[in-house]
Design a protein around this nucleic acid. Structure first.
Lengths: 376, 376
DNA sequence: GTTAACCATGAATCCTCAC
DNA sequence: TGTGAGGATTCATGGTTAA
C-alpha cells in the first residue's frame, strides 16, 4: 500500500502499536506519524483548581479587583493546554478518523468549543448516566449523576466509522440513544495499588469503552489514548481485537496499566464479530435477476395492495403507467416520493401470493457466499 | 442604601412585571434596571446549521427548524451574540441571582464556555433525557435523545436559591439527580396557530420549567426569559406564584404567549401536589450484560437440558447453529417457535451449574434501584 | 360504544459510490 | 469537483378513522 505524504515525512518513527509511551502527551503525539490513527479516546484532566487560584502563592487573598484577571488567566491556560493536545491528536488522525472526549461541566464546554474551532465535526454528545453516583452530601446542588462525552469526526467530510447495527443489537433491537446508563467502576474491576487504595482517581468502566469501541471502530483499527491512566482504553481495545497506543505521564499509572494489559486476552473472531449492516452487503443490479431467469421479461410486478403495476423489460428496467426506468425510479415516480427502494417496494406473483423482489436478491447473495466468503 | 451607578441610571424605567416586551432582547435588557431579577431562564437559538432536507423512511419530510432567527454566518458571529445577551442578562441579575440556559451540542459548549468566562459559577449541568425523541432516520448517528441545561449562579460568592427538599420530594424522597427524564412537548400542551400548525418550532414542556422554577426560585421571585417564544417560562412562573418578564422579538409568538398567559391561573401552594404513576420495570437490553462483563463475548449459553447451544457476541447478539440475532430471536429459531423469552430460555454455566440469564437482569435492575422514577 | 388500525410528527448539523 | 443513480433508514406518543 502506498503511504501518504504525511506518513512518509514522519516515518522516521513508526507508530508503536500496543505499547504505553511515557511522557508528555503533546510532545509524544507530535513525534508520531501523522494520519496513522483511527480513533482517539481522551479523558483529559480538568483540575482547574479555581479555588486555589483565588490565593496568591504567598497565600494572601486575591482581592476583588484581581478576581476577573485571575479567573481569565486560569481559563486561558487550560484553554491553551486543550488547544495543543487537541491539535496534536487531530494531526495523528486519518482523514476518516474520529475522536471521543469525556469530561464534566468543569471542562467539557471549553473542550467542546475548541473541538468545533479546530474543524472537528461533532456527531453526538453522549451522556454517561451513572447508576450509582456519589450523592451531593451537603444538599447544596443536584446529585452530579452524569458525565458528558463528545464524539466528533476529524472533519465534516470524514467518512467516520459507525457500526449502527452492532449498537442497535447491544440495545436489543432499538436504535442506540445518546444517553447511556452504566455503573461507575467499582468492585473487582477497580484497580488497587500496593497499599490497597484505588490506583487512579477516575478509572473509567470497561463497559463505557466497550460501547465506544464496538460502535465507532472496526477490528484491526488503531485506538490512541493520550491520557492513558490505568489503561482501560487499551484493555478493551486489546480484548476486542483492536490495536492501542497509550500515552501516560505518571510512571505509577503506566506500571499498573502494563500489568493489567499483560493479563488481557484477545477474544476470538466469533466473539468479536458484530452484526453487519445491510449497506455493507454486495450490491446486486436488478438486471441480474432477469439475466438469471428468476423473472422473465414481460412479467408483471405489483406494489403492496397492487395499487401500482409495472412490467419487467429485458434490460432490467421497468415500465409502468408509461414511466420507464429502474425499479427504484419507477416506484418513486408512481408514489410521487423522493426515493423508493424497489427491492422492497415491488412484488411478483407466485401461486397467488405476492413475494417481494428482495427474496430474489437474497438468493443471489447466498449463491455468491460460496464463491467469495466474507468475514463475519 | 446607596444605589449603584447602574441602578441610578436605569431607575427611570422600573422593571415591568408580568408583561411581554417586544424587540431585541439585548437592547431591551440593557434598558431595564440592573440587579432586579432573581432568575434568568434562556432558550437561545441553537445555530443548528442544517443543510438539505431530511425524510423519514416512509418518505415523509421532517419539518426542520430553519427559521431565520436560527441562522448565523459563523461561530464568531454566534459567539458575539452569546457574549452580548449573556452580559446583558448578568447585569440584570441580583447578586444572589442565577441563570439557566438550555441547548444542544450545536451551541451548548460555546454558551457554557462564555458563561464561565463572564464569571458565572456553574452549579450543575442538567440533562433533559427525552422519553420520546425523534429517531435518527438514516441510521448514521445515535438518536439525539437529550438536551443540556446549565445552571449557574451570578458569581462564585452568590447565595443562590436551591430548594433541596422540594426537589427531593418531587423525586419520591430521593435526592434529585442531574438527569431529568421528561417527555417532549406534544398533544394538548403544544400550542397551535390559526392554521392548526405548531405555533413555535421548539416549544419546551412545562414539566421542565416546573422543575427549574420549583427548585431554584421562591414564590414572589422575578423570572426573566429573554427568548420568550410562546411563553412557557411565564406560564409556569405565573402558575407557581412567581413574577415573570418576557422578551420576544417575533410578534406572532408574542400574541400566542399573551393569549396563553391570560388563561393561566395562579395556583395555591397547596395545589401544587405532584401526581405520578408508579415506575415501570426498566427494560434491560441483553447487551448491557456483555458490556458490564457479566458474560464474556465468546461464552456459551445453553437451553434447558442443553438441547441447544449458542455463543455470545461482542454486540450482545448470539450465534447458534449459524443463526444470528438477539437472545430471543435465536431461541425462537432453534425451537421453531414464533417467540421466545431469551432471558429465561438461555443459561450460562458457573461451577458446573446452569444459571438462567434472568438472574443477571435482576442484578442490573437491583443496581438501578434508587434511580429517579420515570414520570407519567 | 369499544377496540384496533392507521396516521402524523418531534431543535436533525442523517448516504455513498461510480463516472 | 459535480452529477446521477442505487437504495437504506424510525421510536414514542397522541389523534383520527375504520371495524
Amino acid at each position: 500500500m502506498t503511504k501518504t505524504k504525511d506518513q512518509r515525512a514522519d516515518s522516521a518513527r513508526p507508530l508503536p502499536l500496543n505499547q504505553i509511551l511515557g511522557g508528555d502527551c503533546i510532545e509524544i503525539m507530535n513525534g508520531l506519524p501523522a494520519g496513522s490513527v483511527d480513533l482517539v479516546f481522551a479523558d483529559p484532566p480538568y483540575n482547574l483548581q479555581l479555588k486555589g487560584d483565588l490565593h496568591r502563592p504567598d497565600n494572601s487573598r486575591v482581592d476583588a479587583v484581581d478576581d476577573h484577571w485571575d479567573r481569565f488567566s486560569s481559563f486561558a491556560s487550560y484553554d491553551a493546554f486543550t488547544r495543543d493536545w487537541l491539535a496534536a491528536a487531530r494531526r495523528l488522525l486519518k482523514p476518516n478518523g474520529a475522536i471521543w472526549v469525556i469530561g464534566s461541566y468543569h471542562n467539557i464546554f471549553r473542550v467542546g468549543a475548541e473541538i468545533q474551532n479546530q474543524g472537528f465535526w461533532i456527531m453526538n454528545d453522549v451522556i454517561w448516566r451513572k447508576t450509582n453516583p456519589m450523592p451531593n452530601f451537603r444538599g447544596k446542588r443536584l446529585t452530579n449523576a452524569h458525565e458528558t462525552l463528545i464524539w466528533a469526526a476529524k472533519s465534516e467530510s470524514s467518512k467516520y466509522t459507525f457500526n449502527y447495527e452492532a449498537l442497535k443489537s447491544l440495545n436489543e433491537g432499538i436504535q442506540m440513544r445518546s444517553d447511556w446508563v452504566l455503573p461507575i467502576c467499582t468492585g473487582g474491576e477497580r484497580l488497587k495499588d500496593a497499599a490497597g487504595d484505588k490506583a487512579h482517581p477516575t478509572q473509567k468502566p470497561e463497559s463505557l469503552l466497550h460501547r465506544v469501541i464496538i460502535g465507532t471502530t472496526n477490528p484491526g483499527d488503531v485506538v490512541l489514548d493520550p491520557f492513558f491512566g490505568t489503561g482501560t482504553t487499551g484493555a478493551v481495545a486489546k480484548m476486542l481485537g483492536r490495536d492501542y497506543v497509550g500515552i501516560e505521564r505518571e510512571e505509577a499509572y503506566r506500571e499498573v496499566a502494563a500489568r493489567r494489559l499483560a493479563r488481557i486476552r484477545r477474544l476470538d473472531q466469533d466473539a468479536i464479530a458484530t452484526t453487519r449492516a445491510k449497506r455493507a452487503e454486495p450490491r446486486i443490479p436488478f438486471g441480474q435477476v432477469v439475466e438469471r431467469g428468476m423473472l422473465r421479461p414481460g412479467e408483471e410486478l405489483f406494489s403492496i395492495g397492487s395499487r401500482h403495476k409495472a412490467k419487467v423489460r429485458a434490460d432490467g428496467s421497468l415500465i409502468g403507467n408509461d414511466i420507464k426506468g429502474s425499479i427504484h425510479q419507477v416506484g418513486a415516480a408512481l408514489e410521487g416520493a423522493p426515493s423508493c427502494n424497489g427491492w422492497t417496494y415491488w412484488h411478483f406473483r407466485r401461486e397467488g401470493k405476492l413475494i417481494p423482489l428482495d427474496i430474489l436478491r437474497q438468493q443471489i447473495r447466498a449463491e455468491m457466499e460460496g464463491d467469495a466468503p466474507r468475514p463475519n
